[in-house]
Design a protein around this nucleic acid. Structure first.
Lengths: 249, 249
DNA sequence: TTATCTTTGTTCGTTATTCGCACAGGAATG
DNA sequence: CATTCCTGTGCGAATAACGAACAAAGATAA
């Protein structure tokens, strides 16, 4: 029987919170219900509860999330030792090569930025700790998926939505790149997430050899030929990677 | 009869999530129940639900929040137009004076960092977008509280816990500084949040004159006399403040 | 070691609450 | 005016939460 007692109301409410997104920051009750796949009455109760607790605001027509919801995730980010440990090395790497670098971890089918050392370069998308991108089309995502068993990685591809004309959307093609990343120990992305942006990533391992995160360099596409990127930047990445292997538990 | 129907289960679950903190990232059922002021059975159901949904992990003894909870807050941060708008100006300000600068907003009795331009300086506390600090002892917090009515500001002081020997912990003394900030249009903090760190902040207003955020400069305490700080740095802050007033809606 | 005490985790039946359907009131649209 | 959404609200049925009692695991002391 083993029926686990679970709190339905909590699950529903979290679904409602996740129904909000950057594209749809303002939701009516009906929209929220549709996005969370709940009954309108239930969604309404959730939203009223969130508003009462200060997590949401209501202007009579639309509900909006308030900054108070950030408090929910902050505990987790502040808890993680990773950001503090990697930040100085990330700064060093970024200074060495003169380009932006980041560290991210895997959550389901997305990568989550946990640290970043930005150089003053123009980029359309603002990346900061907590930001998320699909794993399948990012260099760090491919490196992180490569650390998982084949079937597990395939199940975490998520929806293969093209972000640029260069984005690989065939599951087998993506899995082939992931296999290549596993064999090579690094992944290289050419404008699959944003036009004009290339990226090269290596996995970060702890002292036991377990992959705990990924580190990348973001590179403007105008700078060099794709074929030269690995030779030019992989050395610096490998140095920092080796140093961090000693630091991480 | 005006009885608002609210979902108790959701409220309880959110209390449980907030029970996790940087100091106590790993909680047993009993600890979580105590921190969230819930019955153990209730806390257990909440934690099991969170674990089932992937927001928490359970190793048989302790529960931990997973990076998946970051997804809850991300929607709100990604939604906000503020970070993207202020970031270039913040970078410019930071380059001008050679010190770190930040923008934050008020949430209850805390300030929440939404953007930051860091210079390569040593700081014990890692600040990033989403980080929180008490409002009462920070320069940005005093400036933001100064924008509220007196009684409202006083009710948002929160717990006046000293973070350093310099921290003001008397409500009336803090309110006096807030009143001074309201009169002067800026706030200056001398090592109240961290030894060796001073900070000067101004409010950011939109084109209607409403205070929507605060902007500060973090300054090492070894650099100059406290009395000279306003004269030296306020000019640069005021320039960016004026520019942002045109940009913000 | 054994015994007792304390703390923690789990189970269970009762109670109170929520779920989801249905209907009605409004507001915007054509 | 009719139509189409969206929202608010009862109500019966279902079910999840409550709290105490029970079981399990350490901790302390003799």
């Amino acid at each position: 029987m083993e029926k686990r007692d679970t709190m339905g109301g909590l699950a529903k409410g979290l679904r409602v919170i996740e129904a909000f997104s950057a594209e749809k920051p303002r939701l009516t009750i009906t929209e929220a219900a549709a996005r969370a796949d709940l009954d309108r009455a239930t969604a309404r109760r959730c939203l009223l509860t969130l508003a009462e607790l200060g997590y949401a605001a209501f202007d009579g027509k639309f509900f909006t999330l308030t900054p108070h919801v950030l408090r929910l995730g902050t505990a987790c980010l502040a808890t993680m030792p990773l950001p503090g440990l990697v930040q100085p090395w990330l700064d060093q790497l970024s200074d060495m090569v003169g380009e932006s670098s980041s560290v991210s971890i895997l959550d389901r089918s997305e990568i989550v930025y946990v640290a970043r050392a930005a150089q003053k370069k123009v980029m359309s998308i603002a990346l900061m700790p907590g930001s998320r991108l699909p794993a399948f089309c990012t260099s760090m995502g491919r490196v992180l998926l490569a650390a998982l068993p084949e079937t597990e990685a395939r199940s975490r591809l998520g929806i293969l939505a093209a972000r640029t004309p260069h984005t690989l959307t065939d599951p087998d093609a993506v899995m082939a790149r992931i296999a290549a990343a596993r064999a090579d120990g690094y992944a290289l992305i050419d404008q699959e997430v944003e036009i004009g942006l290339r990226s090269i990533a290596v996995p970060l391992m702890d002292s036991h050899g377990r992959v705990v995160a990924a580190m990348n360099l973001g590179l403007p596409a105008t700078q060099a030929r794709v074929e030269d990127l690995a030779e030019r930047y992989l050395g610096a990445l490998r140095v920092i990677q080796a140093e961090l292997r000693k630091v991480l538990t």
